[in-house]
């Protein structure tokens, strides 16, 4: 932080003579996002989150025997941990920021801008912690193989997408549910549904309808779960069928590598957009 920002006394002359109504959309979004991101970045939990990835990546790079295997192990950890930490952290943060959000809403700013500012202010630090935690050990160890670079990029992309998705889901929960304990319960429930219950459901469907062609059903099922979708996108990219599981194998068999990746990535983008759109709608209509 610069000394200029620390000092409270600011001369009016240094500021442009624009009124709030004329402040550009992106300007408001970025201002809110910047201050909020700064707050989030100072949180101890975010540091723990970043250090966790740092330690896991460093450990796996040293002991997993080969960068490719390390990336696969990191991927499976990212697919579990990122949704859980994102949804829990974001939900708790939003409940505790309730009064702050009210204060911001009482300023001459429209709700759309405020929403996107808050969304970025929360998701960008979470993505940064993941990126820095995973990338730093790779940078230190040196890392030249282009295929592995592509694998790492795919992993970070999937992690970033999951962060954006579950931050959006956290907004929906915090805006719909007034009770913070209930909201946190919902958040954990959503994660369990996506990360654990879903796998059991797939197994049950496969076992129960083993005699029927299930490919299309499985394809549809994957599209309903962002975590599975991220997993499939990632594994299609990494090209390791052994880890693809049932739905991943179906994806590859039906859509092939390139098309499959495209469809999965497209569906993942829709998954980012949907909670954001729903959250924005709730934010604009809510009585605070």
């Amino acid at each position: 932080m610069s000394a200029g920002e620390m000092s409270v006394s600011v001369s009016a002359a240094s500021a442009p003579a624009s009124t709030a109504a004329h402040v550009r959309f992106s300007a408001v979004v970025l201002r809110v996002a910047r201050y909020q991101a700064r707050d989030v970045l100072r949180s101890r939990w975010l540091a723990v989150y970043g250090v966790f990835f740092l330690a896991v990546t460093e450990g796996l790079l040293r002991f997993a025997g080969g960068d490719a295997r390390a990336i696969l192990s990191i991927a499976s950890i990212v697919l579990y941990v990122v949704p859980l930490v994102t949804i829990a952290f974001a939900t708790v943060y939003l409940y505790s920021a309730r009064e702050f959000i009210e204060l911001l809403l009482a300023q001459p700013v429209d709700r759309r801008r405020l929403f996107f500012g808050l969304y970025l202010g929360l998701s960008v630090p979470l993505v940064s912690a993941l990126l820095i935690g995973v990338c730093a050990p790779f940078v230190v160890h040196g890392f030249d193989d282009p295929t592995q670079r592509a694998m790492l990029a795919a992993l970070l992309g999937a992690g970033a997408a999951l962060t954006m998705i579950f931050t959006g889901v956290a907004f929906c929960i915090a805006l719909w549910c007034e009770d913070r304990l209930k909201g946190l319960g919902f958040a954990i429930g959503v994660w369990m549904l996506c990360a654990i219950v879903y796998d059991g459901l797939v197994m049950a469907v496969v076992a129960a309808f083993a005699d029927y062609p299930l490919e299309r059903v499985m394809l549809a099922l994957t599209l309903t779960n962002p975590v599975d979708l991220a997993r499939v996108t990632l594994l299609l990219q990494l090209d390791v069928s052994a880890l693809m599981g049932y739905t991943g194998a179906v994806f590859q068999q039906f859509l092939g590598g390139a098309v499959g990746t495209l469809v999965a990535a497209g569906a993942l983008s829709l998954w980012i957009a949907a909670p954001v759109a729903l959250g924005l709608r709730a934010f604009r209509r809510k009585d605070f």
Partner: peptide, 26 residues
């Protein structure tokens, strides 16, 4: 507002700056 609850890691000076920024540098 009735309750003075703010983001924990923000400073008062930052809060003032943010509000000022939102009012177009009033």
């Amino acid at each position: 507002p009735q309750l003075a609850r703010f983001p924990e890691h923000m400073t008062g000076a930052e809060l003032i700056h943010l509000l000022r920024n939102l009012r177009g540098g009033a």
